[in-house]
Nucleic acid binder design. Structure first.
Lengths: 131, 131
DNA sequence: TGACTACTGATAACTCAGTCTCACCTTCAT
DNA sequence: ATGAAGGTGAGACTGAGTTATCAGTAGTCA
């Protein structure tokens, strides 16, 4: 749980943030990171969370994920091509393996598709069973 | 180009906004509506645009469309199921006919999918040909 | 036509995510 | 152990998008 890697200092807070990504399978928002980090190190500030996100993005350890109608999430870099499920109840985002493909067929004539996003919405497993 | 429909007044501004949706095939943002409306009726205020959007949403003449990484758009209600193409250069959004289907297969066990969004990103026809 | 009142335009205010500032603290090379 | 300097936490600040306020305007109805 300590990796210098650059000339930056190896602080508890940055290691904590890196550890949260390492041990969480789903993409996290800044607020989710703050909540999770606060339960381990109470008092950690939101500015530190954003600084940590910025550093990890620069090091390409995480990637930015934009989703419709909610705040950005950040996810471990280097995963296979996949999409996301957004729970409309708890607002958590989950990775979804695979892809339907055949999206080229949808692209209008003359348009050049560079990437695509598929977002499933509904209830996650825990919100589907509870009211 | 004049439809009372409720006890609300039938103003030039509201008719203009309704007309813009009626004669535009692609979803529009508040700013795009302001730009388009201003070219027809200079001096129209942004507050009037938002008031018009609110009224049309209440009357279910338009629907709200959330997209990743950009501002909300609004689109004529009652269209067939379709998705959207977001131009990464001009930030315009275009409707995309059809759908790949087979998305149920992606839903993780225990999750309940209620809807899905597919967003294609790249260059629209006019941005693809110009630099 | 005249009066009532909802609507408009300008702009201030609000909301929220994200950034900046700065005094204090922690890390780390010495 | 010590000092230099980058990191931290608190909170002010910023900017984009949206909403509220209010005096003046225009639609509606008698």
């Amino acid at each position: 749980m300590s990796e210098p890697k650059t000339d930056k200092r190896n602080t508890q807070q940055q290691n904590l943030i890196r550890g949260l990504f390492r041990h969480t399978e789903r993409p996290l928002s800044a607020q989710e990171l703050l909540d999770a980090a606060s339960s381990i190190q109470p008092g950690i500030g939101i500015a530190t969370i954003y600084r940590g996100i910025k550093t990890l993005l620069e090091r390409q350890e995480i990637v930015h994920i934009a989703l419709p109608g909610t705040t950005p999430r950040y996810e471990k870099a280097g995963t296979h091509h996949h999409h996301h499920f957004l729970c409309t109840r708890c607002d958590k985002v989950y990775p979804v393996a695979g892809c339907t493909g055949h999206l080229d067929k949808l692209t209008p004539p003359g348009f050049v598709m560079e990437s695509h996003k598929i977002v499933l919405e509904g209830r996650c497993a825990s919100c589907a069973t509870s009211n």
